[in-house]
Structures are given as C-alpha cells and as structure tokens.
C-alpha cells in the first residue's frame, strides 16, 4: 500500500526521489480521510517551496487541508491534470494523483522524513 522507496511526512505527504528531483503527493491515508477531493490549489512552476512549509491546499466538500513541502527547492512541474480531475488524488494518490515535482536544494532533508514502515506505524496501520 505505501511504496517502500517513498519518504513520508507527519502531515501525510509522500516524496519520491527521481534522479535529483523529488515528486510530491499526499498519501492514501490522507486522501481517504479527506473523502472526495474536489479541488487542489498548487503553486506555479518556478516558485520556491520550503521544507515543511505550506505550498498548496487540497479540498473536499467539507474540509480544506494545507499541503506541506517534504523538501525545499524550486517547483519544476505541476500536475495540471488535477485542475480538471481532482478525483485522481483519491483514485491513485501515490501515482497519477501526484502534485508537484521539486528541484531540491537540500535532498538530505528527505532523511528527516519517515520510511514506509515508520509511516504505517504513524497512522496506526502497522
């Protein structure tokens, strides 16, 4: 359920290393808890994000949650499909439902996040 090669934040974001860059999304646990995602507000390509600072918002009908960057750096890609298909976050949170790709300034920040097993424990699914 939670890919072993991803890193996980306490705020339920995942981070996946892709040769120097980091792809970011929210976990299945977070997506399920939000219920049907209706809107995702994402930064523009080129903007800067900071480690564990908000970079966007994900919304369901009755709730809005901030998204926290699991790594600092510049946004180089944004998942434009989410604009018309926010349901991808529910359907495939760890894949098609990704949110941004970051050119990390300090990839070692990822070491401060949890691995899959620690995350499963964190959410009580271990």
């Amino acid at each position: 359920m939670y890919p072993e090669d991803y890193r996980y934040s306490t705020e339920h974001e995942w981070a996946k290393r892709e040769n120097g860059r980091v792809r970011v999304g929210i976990t299945r646990f977070a997506a399920d808890r939000l219920t049907d995602v209706v809107y995702v507000e994402l930064p523009q390509v080129g903007s800067e994000v900071r480690f564990m600072q908000p970079f966007g918002v994900v919304e369901s009908v009755k709730a809005a949650s901030e998204l926290y960057a699991p790594v600092s750096g510049r946004v180089v890609e944004v998942n434009e499909r989410l604009r018309d298909h926010p349901e991808l976050v529910n359907e495939d949170p760890h894949g098609e439902g990704w949110m941004i790709v970051v050119e990390a300034t300090d990839p070692s920040e990822l070491d401060r996040l949890m691995d899959a097993q620690a995350y499963r424990q964190h959410i009580g699914e271990a």
Partner: peptide, 12 residues
C-alpha cells in the same frame, strides 16, 4: 465551494 467560508476555513 464552501471551503472559502468561515465555518470550514476559519481564520483562512
């Protein structure tokens, strides 16, 4: 679009 409103978003 109620996530704009005070009962959900409170101070934001």
């Amino acid at each position: 679009l109620q996530t704009r409103e005070q009962h959900i978003r409170r101070e934001k």
